[in-house]
Nucleic acid binder design. Structure first.
Length: 952
RNA sequence: GCGGGCGUGGCGAAAUUGGUAGACGCACUAGACUUAGGAUCUAGCGCUUCACGGCAUGGGGGUUCGAGUCCCUCCGCCCGCACCA
């Protein structure tokens, strides 16, 4: 008895032991991503695995992300999408033997930190620092291969010192239209000094495109006062101070650049924007309009971005033309693209802001015109844009002289003419321009047809086709030829000339804000001067409040009395806009610690331009235009040698949120499953998406999430509470924010990386949906299992089938990466691992290259498995596998043969056959013979490797 | 209005130059192994038909032996610019 009991116990004991042991073994085999990822992230940081070398014989590859603004909300799952793609590229290129520059930084000046500072009084530098810390933690969890030693922050004085320095270079430069590049302002001064007064009209520079200021036609440069000289140079400097109409946003208390205004409201915050005449610092980006346009042809950017920039630059060829004003010693200059319709002009229209309006308005019309101007000024941009159809205007009482007929034509004021474009005045040809037509119809002005075609009693005929009529010397010409003839005649008479106009405006550069780079300018007797370079950086001073002063001066005016240049001169009080620091960050990464230069010549020569730039398309007409502009400028001054900053640009799509919605029966505390909601009068409630798994709500978690659900009654479907989904912007407001941290915690960084790529094409907008993530997670588990079979790793030679599975994958993945199709490569990994699993492959010969192949996508698991295979060096330094065509083609393919869609069969042929032999074999196959029955084939089409068609 | 992009199963999506449309994944169905599984494995899964087959890439037309892919046209969606003379 005792013995039996004992042996039973022994058996039991053994069983328990075996189970325990098995359990241990399973544990050892399990894919423990948390442990692995932490281990390798630490390893990479300690060993500086991803350090980019400044001196290398290797070819360089520069892959850059648009750096983030570190907001308080932290990263959500949409932010890293582009970073993951660029990281894959960086790792792939390292495997391919490139010296890769893959840095990251922070665009850390900006509005939100300042708004927060205004509310709380906390210095923006502190919140920014906290946010950066949080960002870094989040980024580190995803396992990026950034070279963090090269980190830059735009709000760091060591960085903005050089932003200020570049501003000074802009201030000290002008654009020479003759050499077609920026030059030091001294070369312009020299030109002015050499001018001899009174002869300048037909002097040496007669045909030059350089406009000589009026005053120099009577006086020598040296005779001018310092103030006069300064004022003249301001008209040429690339960074200049001028009085101009700007987009003023009262709510934000600052001016905004055109690209920061959308539909008449501020892009940030959506506050109304009005036009205001202000003295402002601007950058003369218009000087670069033509080069910015031309450069688009040589860069590999998406068509939509290039079109957006072309649109924004808005080149249009036409003619400037002067009309004398009857009874005044004055002229109105207009710009037109249709000089061929000059004989159809029935009136001129001036913009309400036009300087001549006041001068030429007759006493009888004065009251009306003034009332109109007041009305036009008080209309906000938004109102004006909203009712474009509403035609308004007023007659000035003055008349202009049609230069060819000598006839009087009335001059009107109308706000459909924009002050900022062309000359702010148009010659109105109602018959051939729909806007002039609407105006003429409203105010009963004559409509004279001068181009044949259309029905001008109904609408304007604005097509640029047809014969010119009623037009003296232009009669009978086609529109195209008439334009040329008209320009020639206009130029001959000296009343105008051919001209190219751009829609692009100079970029307003000053912001009435605190949290930005101080503009390195001081005022000496009201004359703005650049601070000496050796005094840079001008450190952002401390202020008591981050608000404008009572006098309406910007916050910097609050700085203490000691904040003066050289102890006596006032500084400029506005700061630079957000896009200043981001306009050159790509250069600083090349040489981030340099204290003597913004970038050394040597580093700039080696790294040249960005090979791949990844970021959002929302910067199309902002950052992406400005950083091209600064690049061209710095090239002109000889500091760098590239004309375009980024060879290739990819705009990653936005990841939207998938909101979860449940239904509560109105007036009760009863929650019903989505399928049952139509039975009731139910209201939709957004709930936290993290409480939901595959549309099934975790009721226990829901009850904890919000008090009102704790005691709710639930009506379920098959025991489950199902929710509905809606695609919305990812935002706290909709409880649909998913953070990368939560995904890393649950599935690991490698799964996150793979899944973000797997979600769909990189450039496409797509909603985040965690449902499919188990698929890629399972793939990693399966991959892990391949390396942990019962028999361990075998050194046996691989079979044909195994080799084929591997090499097919290598080929496809290489192709996928080269064409930035990251989503398909994830599928290709899955196919390969499935095939190898089916083959129970545990061979080193296969698994080693496989893991290298996957490592750019899933670096942590790759490093772990690589070290398990006995390697001590990081997988990052291993050469990327190359596919072997032989493994792909050795066995037989099937060749289907089809005829006219009527009949189809497959025959098996060896791959080794030439196309000719394939053709012969196809024709002699029994199926083909039977079908042909003596007919002679007219055409045999052999498509390599795929299909043979026989046509009779 | 002008310009750019897109339209493929229940869902995310593949299809490199025109060449067996729907790879891969999710969801779903059935089964195996399990005390159990939210683990793993096997099979099925565009529509239609009992089946052979037929029909399918927004609609219509064209080119071609062959069209998701090229051309024309219409419809729908997204994005950018918008009184730019």
């Amino acid at each position: 008895m005792e013995f039996i009991a004992k042996s039973n116990m022994l058996i039991k004991f053994t069983e328990v032991y075996i189970i325990k042991f098995a359990h241990l073994q399973i544990n050892r085999m399990e894919y423990n991503f948390r442990e692995i990822e932490q281990k390798w992230q630490q390893h990479w940081a300690e060993h500086k695995t991803y350090k980019a070398l400044d001196n290398s014989d290797k070819s360089k590859y520069y892959v850059l992300d648009m750096f983030p603004y570190p907001s308080g909300a932290g990263l959500h799952v949409g932010h890293p999408l582009g970073y993951i793609a660029s990281d894959i590229m960086a790792r792939y290129k390292r495997h391919k033997g490139f010296n890769v520059l893959h840095p990251m930084g922070y665009d850390s000046f900006g509005l939100p930190a300042e708004q927060y500072a205004i509310q709380t009084g906390q210095h923006p530098a502190i919140t920014t620092e906290q946010n950066i810390k949080r960002y870094r933690e989040q980024l580190d969890k995803i396992g990026f291969s950034f070279d963090w030693d090269r980190e830059v922050r735009t709000s760091d004085p060591n960085y903005y010192k050089w932003t200020q320095w570049i501003f000074i270079q802009l201030f000290n430069s002008w654009y020479n239209p003759e050499s077609d590049k920026a030059e030091p302002i001294e070369t312009l001064i020299k030109k002015f000094k050499n001018l001899s007064p009174n002869s300048s009209q037909n002097g040496e520079g007669n045909n030059s495109s350089l406009n000589i200021p009026e005053i120099l036609k009577n006086k020598r440069w040296n005779e001018l006062s310092e103030k006069e000289q300064s004022d003249i140079l301001m008209e040429y400097r690339l960074a200049y101070l001028s009085e101009a109409y700007v987009n003023w946003c009262p709510a934000l208390g600052t001016v905004l650049a055109n690209d920061e205004v959308k539909d008449g409201v501020s892009e940030r915050g959506g506050h109304p924007v009005e036009r205001k005449l202000m003295k402002q610092w601007s950058l003369r980006i218009t000087a670069y309009a033509e080069r910015l346009l031309k450069g688009l042809d040589i860069i590999d950017w998406s068509e939509s971005i290039k079109e957006a920039q072309r649109n924004w630059i808005g080149r249009s060829e036409g003619t400037s033309l002067k009309f004398e004003i009857d009874g005044y010693n004055a002229e109105v200059e207009v710009f037109t693209t249709r000089p061929d319709t000059i004989f159809g002009v029935s009136y001129l229209t001036l913009a309400p802001e036009h300087e001549l309006v006041e001068k030429i308005t007759t006493p009888e019309q004065k009251e009306k015109v003034e009332a109109y101007i007041t009305y036009a000024k008080n209309r906000s941009e938004r109102e004006r844009q909203a009712d474009v159809k509403k035609v308004t205007g007023e007659f000035t009482g003055a008349y202009a002289i049609q230069p060819f007929t000598g006839k009087q034509i009335p001059i009107w004021v109308g706000d459909y003419v924009l002050a900022g474009y062309g000359t702010g005045a148009v010659m109105a040809v109602p018959a051939h321009d729909s806007r002039d037509y609407a105006f003429a119809k409203t105010f009963n002005l004559p409509i004279l047809q001068v181009v044949e075609g259309g029905d001008i009693s109904k609408e304007a005929y604005d097509t640029k086709e047809g014969k010119i009529i009623n037009s003296d010397f232009l009669n009978g010409l086609e529109v195209k030829d008439a334009i040329k003839a008209a320009i020639a005649e206009i130029e001959k008479r000296g009343i105008g000339k051919g001209k190219i106009n751009y829609r692009l405006r100079d970029a307003v550069f000053g912001r009435q804000r605190y949290w930005g780079e101080p503009i390195p300018i001081y005022y000496d007797n009201e004359i703005p001067k650049a601070v000496d370079e050796k005094h840079l950086p001008i450190i952002l001073p401390e202020v008591d409040k981050y608000l404008p002063t009572e006098d309406g001066d910007p916050p910097l005016a609050r700085a203490s009395e000691k904040w003066k240049y050289q102890g006596k001169y006032d500084y400029e009080f506005t700061t630079m806009p957000g896009w200043a620091g981001s306009s050159w960050h790509f250069l600083r990464y090349m040489d981030p610690k340099n204290e003597k230069e913004f970038v050394s010549k040597k580093a700039a020569e080696y790294w040249k331009e960005i090979d791949l730039y990844i970021g959002g398309a929302e910067h199309a007409t902002g950052h992406l235009l400005y950083f091209r502009f600064w690049t061209k400028f710095l090239k002109d001054l000889g500091y760098i040698s590239i004309e375009e900053p980024a060879k290739k640009l990819i705009n990653q799509g936005m990841i939207q949120g998938t909101s979860a919605i449940i239904y509560r029966v109105n007036g009760t505390n009863k929650i019903v499953s989505a399928g049952l909601k139509n039975k009731y009068d139910a209201v939709a409630i957004h709930i936290d998406v993290n409480l939901v798994d595959n549309s099934i709500v975790n009721i226990e978690e829901l009850k904890k999430w919000r008090d009102d659900f704790a005691n709710a009654e639930f009506e379920l479907e098959n025991g489950k509470l199902i929710c509905h989904h809606e695609v919305e912007k990812m935002s706290k407001r909709w409880f649909n924010v998913v953070t990368p941290d939560s995904i890393c915690e649950k599935y690991g960084a490698d799964t996150l990386r793979l899944y973000e790529m797997f979600l769909g094409p990189l450039e496409q907008h797509k909603p985040w949906n965690t449902n499919g993530i188990t698929g890629v997670h399972n793939f990693l588990k399966k991959l892990w299992r391949l390396f942990h079979s019962e028999n361990g790793i075998s050194n046996e030679a691989a079979s044909k089938a195994e080799l084929k599975a591997l090499h097919k994958c290598i080929k496809k993945v290489n192709e996928d990466i080269e064409r930035f199709s990251f989503n398909t490569s994830v599928s290709n990994f899955m196919i390969c691992v499935n095939e190898l699993s089916d083959l129970k492959c545990n061979k080193r010969e296969i698994l080693e290259p496989l893991i290298v192949l996957i490592s750019p996508y899933a670096p942590h698991i790759a490093e772990e498995l690589w070290s398990k295979l006995g390697h001590t060096e990081s997988i990052e330094y291993v050469t990327y596998p190359v596919h072997n065509e032989a493994y792909l083609t050795e066995d037989n393919f099937n060749y289907p043969v089809s005829f006219n869609g009527k009949m189809r069969f497959n025959i098996e042929l060896p791959i080794t056959l030439s196309p000719k032999e394939v053709e012969e074999a196809a024709l002699s196959a029994p199926e083909a013979q039977k079908w042909l029955e003596g007919k002679t084939p007219k055409k045999v089409i052999v498509v390599p490797k795929k299909i043979v068609n026989i046509v009779v």
